[in-house]
Write a protein that binds this DNA or RNA. Structure first.
Length: 904
DNA sequence: ATCGTAACGTA
DNA sequence: CGTACGTTACGATG
């Protein structure tokens, strides 16, 4: 016996998982509905999803130590050369399946799972060869394949997992299972298949001979050779039929014999499972829009034991200090001047935060953990002094949240020199989340896992869940921070983003924390009145709508609306969507123009009022005890660099319609303040376009101070500015903005309700006058394609690997992102700079006025008594001076006691 | 309970 | 077949 294996115990025995990629992907394709699985770019993903889901289950349930996936290489194999009809009845590959196999390969590569294919051979031959080699090495082998030919190499060490229903249920085909199901030994299965045939491979069997007869013969004569020798002796119709098809059966047997000696570049030993490339997995899963599946996969891994299993990365070692003698003060003094990691457990919500426990750690893993509910006065003082000391450098992950938690206990947080969440966002702005545990695995190859104590009680109580475990967990996170910051700082430097963190995002985090804590005052009584009013409009519209169609339906259900509109009322079909035909507002308005059916009017009114009522309800629920709404500004969500607002979203409060604007009256100036002030950049994106493109015409347009769209319209249409009609102006406006989004002539024609040719002419005319814009837009995409990213005026990058994708939809999408990201992102940079300037200048002058909201190109402030004039000048100056562009940054200001009245 | 989808609000 | 977001209700899943 091979002595390498002599001491291998059964539990440590290597286990090789082999998957027939094409056959399982194809099964998954038919098991899952195509229309339920596709990305926003239209790429179908049902086969990918099914395949990866199955793979996840296999890894979880079977715990393979080695994995490989084999694919068919092409249409011609040594079998088709011998028998051209082989697999000839297969329908052409369905269109939605095409393109999914390369995506599966991308997933496998990100998981560092080998995939193999070889010219002229089928996946099954590769699997047979690897299986036989692995068996020879003493490995346990699992073969996952939907091709029954693979049953021939089942033995005591080799099990085939054969899909019985979809890809989620797999039958374990052991020798006994094969014997039970087919009545023959696994090695004789090809004999049986040769007699019975295989329709899906276009292999005709002996007519009248099914699996029962074939098995009977095989057991009676001992095998196919013997059956063929004794063919004359077999009586009856079946025997006759057999004699008429001897050649076919011989050929079948040749074809279904799998090769065990395919020459492969890799052997079983090379297939050992590797730690995942998590960064790449994020990229791939982001593109596939597999959220739940990604979570499932990542959730599986930390549970693995830390042996040599994939993903079992080492953890952090921490030593939690005993503060009973020297106290926190001594511990901190010993580390003066060093950057320390700070982790705060508690509620991280604005104006309602609370901190329960604090962990501080140095880069060596020495940590101090403080239970704030039970803190000696001297430690409380030391903690307070250290937290608010701007000269005591701290590293946090999501400092804004910690700021809120600490504020709940009246601690002031200052001296934050690094935020690992913000840093990671600047490096990879397309990620959705920046989980600290994910980052430590990716950058430090360590897990945030607290090692169970060796003497851990295995009884009813889990010791790790008591207070001490919480302290350990917090200490581990704090200890990870300093090390992580070092790596990320290097990453930031490489990407030219160090200043963005230090001079922009970090200080902005503090400004946002203050803004969120302030909140904005609400007139709750007025909101309740609005709610009642919109509620009445909803009821009235519903009643009238029901009367028109003679029954009550749920007007909020697109499904029921489709029945009413297209079945009951037999209206013309609207644009197709996944679930049928759209009932969106544009389509309903279109239908109304065609049919003038009164139901549509009531339905639209109902939609409007329902929406407004929902908005009002949501706002009412969000009013805090202080009578103000405290939104959270997300600083690491938008890939372009914008902020976003949640719980509630105050960046999408209605303004376009009069009814909607009424909601803005509920946002009011707070007690002790004079008024609200809004200040917004006018046409900032077009100004950035002018600056970035350097187009002389566009720059001149802004310098003249004339109305932009009229100016551009006069140049495009060749008429004096005074003769630019409203219709001309609105066309120009739509096109100008569209250009910054990568608008096509088709899209423009759709939006303006004009012919595609007219839209194309319009764009052509525009570019002939403003050629610099076209040059710029083409250049942006070309440069991004070659360097891999776009950049804003402050160097904020967005990476767009899909610019070189083979998939046209994905490539086109990436191109539009490339066009928009520098413009939207630069505007975001500029207003962020302005916010810092405003906040700083207000503080420098000792004003009471304060920032309350940011809505992308607008700031809302509360004006202290008597400060209106000074504040307006200050805000104008800071906003206009936030960037030095080749065009002026125009700011318009409004004042009023409500957001509505302060608007303009 | 959880998830994806449709719809719709903002810049 | 225009970018960037967040929230809600519905209805199909488990």
């Amino acid at each position: 016996m091979d002595d390498r294996l002599a001491d291998v115990t059964d539990t440590a025995r290597p286990r090789l998982l082999l998957i027939d990629g094409h056959s399982m992907a194809y099964r998954a394709f038919f098991a899952l509905p195509v229309d339920k699985f596709s990305t926003s770019t239209g790429q179908h993903t049902n086969a990918v999803h099914g395949f990866v889901s199955m793979l996840a289950n296999l890894i979880r349930d079977e715990r393979p130590t080695h994995v490989a996936v084999a694919f068919d290489a092409g249409s011609t194999t040594f079998r088709t050369e011998q028998f051209p009809q082989y697999k000839g009845t297969r329908d052409a590959t369905p269109e939605p399946f095409k393109g999914q196999v390369p995506l599966i390969k991308e997933v496998l590569e990100s998981m560092r799972i080998m995939h193999l294919e070889k010219d002229r051979f089928e996946a099954d031959d590769i699997l047979a060869t690897l299986s036989s080699q692995a068996d020879g090495l003493g490995m346990e082998v699992l073969v996952c394949s939907g091709d029954r030919d693979s049953l021939q190499f089942v033995n005591e060490n080799v099990t085939v997992l054969y899909p019985v229903k979809g890809v989620s249920e797999l039958a374990r085909m052991t020798p006994v299972a094969v014997q039970t199901k087919y009545g023959v030994e696994p090695g004789q299965y090809p004999d049986l298949a040769a007699l019975v045939g295989e329709t899906s491979d276009n292999i005709p069997g002996v007519p009248g001979v099914g699996p029962k007869t074939a098995a009977k013969w095989i057991n009676q004569f001992g095998g196919l050779e013997q059956i063929l020798e004794h063919a004359d002796e077999i009586t009856g119709k079946a025997g006759e039929s057999l004699r008429a098809h001897l050649e076919q059966v011989r050929l079948n047997r040749v074809l279904n014999h799998l090769l065990l000696d395919v020459d492969l570049p890799l052997g079983p030993d090379d297939l050992r499972a590797q730690p995942w490339d998590r960064e790449d997995m994020h990229r791939v899963f982001d593109a596939l829009e597999f959220r739940a599946l990604r979570e499932r996969l990542f959730a599986m891994m930390p549970a693995e034991d830390s042996g040599d299993e994939p993903g079992g990365a080492p953890t952090f070692e921490v030593a939690v200090a005993d503060l009973t003698t020297d106290g926190l003060s001594g511990w901190l003094t010993a580390r003066e001047g060093r950057s320390l990691g700070l982790e705060v457990a508690g509620k991280h919500t604005p104006a309602a935060g609370d901190a329960w426990m604090v962990a501080i750690a140095d880069d060596a893993g020495d940590a101090a953990v403080l239970d704030l509910a039970d803190l000696p006065a001297r430690d409380d003082e030391a903690l307070r002094a250290w937290l608010q000391d701007p000269a005591a450098p701290k590293v946090l992950h999501g400092a804004k949240g910690a700021w809120h938690a600490l504020a709940g206990r009246d601690y002031v947080l200052d001296g934050v020199v690094f935020d690992t969440e913000l840093a990671s966002y600047l490096c990879h702005p397309d990620q959705r989340t920046y989980d600290l545990g994910e980052l430590t695995i990716r950058h430090l190859h360590r897990e945030l896992r607290v090692e169970e104590p060796e003497t851990g009680d295995q009884g009813a109580f889990d010791l790790s869940l008591d207070g001490n475990g919480e302290a350990q967990r917090l200490a581990v996170r704090a200890a990870a921070l300093v090390q992580l910051a070092e790596v990320l700082a290097g990453d930031l430097r490489d990407r030219g983003a160090s200043d963005l963190l230090t001079d922009l995002e970090l200080p902005l985090g503090t400004v946002l924390a203050q803004i969120e804590r302030r909140g904005i005052a609400m007139d709750a009584d007025y909101l309740r009145e609005l709610e009642r009013h919109f509620g009445e409009v909803v009821s009235a519209a519903a009643t009238e709508a029901y009367a028109v169609i003679g029954r009550e339906v749920n007007l909020g259900s697109p499904k029921q609306l489709q029945e009413v509109l297209f079945d009951q009322l037999a209206m013309p079909k609207t644009k197709k969507i996944k679930t049928g035909f759209t009932t969106d507002a544009a389509a309903l308005a279109d239908l109304f123009a065609k049919t003038e059916h009164p139901f549509l009017e009531h339905l639209l009114a109902h939609r409007d009022a329902t929406r407004l009522r929902q908005t009002v309800e949501g706002l009412l629920k969000s009013v805090a005890e202080d009578g103000r709404i405290h939104t959270t500004f997300q600083q690491t969500i938008a890939a372009t660099g914008r902020l976003s607002s949640t719980e509630p979203n105050l960046q999408n409060i209605p303004i376009r319609t009069e009814a909607g604007r009424r909601i803005r009256r509920a946002f009011v100036v707070g007690d002790g303040y004079e008024t609200l002030l809004t200040a917004d950049y006018s046409q900032i994106e077009m100004r950035i376009m002018a600056h970035l493109s350097g187009d002389e015409g566009l720059i001149e347009a802004f310098r003249t101070g004339e109305d932009l769209h009229s100016y551009v319209g006069s140049r495009v249409f060749g008429v004096p500015t005074s003769e630019v009609t409203a219709a001309m102006r609105s066309k120009i406006k739509a096109m100008s903005y569209g250009l910054a989004y990568g608008l096509s002539p088709f899209g423009l024609s759709k939006q303006l309700n004009i012919e595609v040719s007219e839209a194309a002419t319009l764009m052509e005319d525009y570019f002939s006058r403003f050629g610099g814009v076209r040059t710029y837009l083409l250049g942006v995409v070309a440069e991004a394609r070659s360097i891999g990213y776009t950049a804003t005026i402050m160097g904020r990058r967005r990476y767009l690997p899909d610019l070189t994708s083979d998939n046209r939809q994905r490539r086109d999408m990436a191109e539009r992102m490339a066009l928009n990201a520098p413009i939207q992102g630069s505007a975001a940079d500029i207003i962020k700079v302005a916010m810092l300037g405003v906040e700083k200048e207000i503080a420098a002058r000792g004003l009471r006025s304060r920032l309350l909201l940011q809505v992308h190109d607008e700031l809302v402030l509360e004006v202290g008594p008597g400060e209106r004039t000074e504040l307006e000048a200050l805000v104008r100056e800071q906003m206009a001076g936030a960037a030095d562009l080749s065009v002026p940054l125009d700011v318009s200001v409004g004042v009023g006691t409500s957001w509505h009245d302060a608007g303009h």
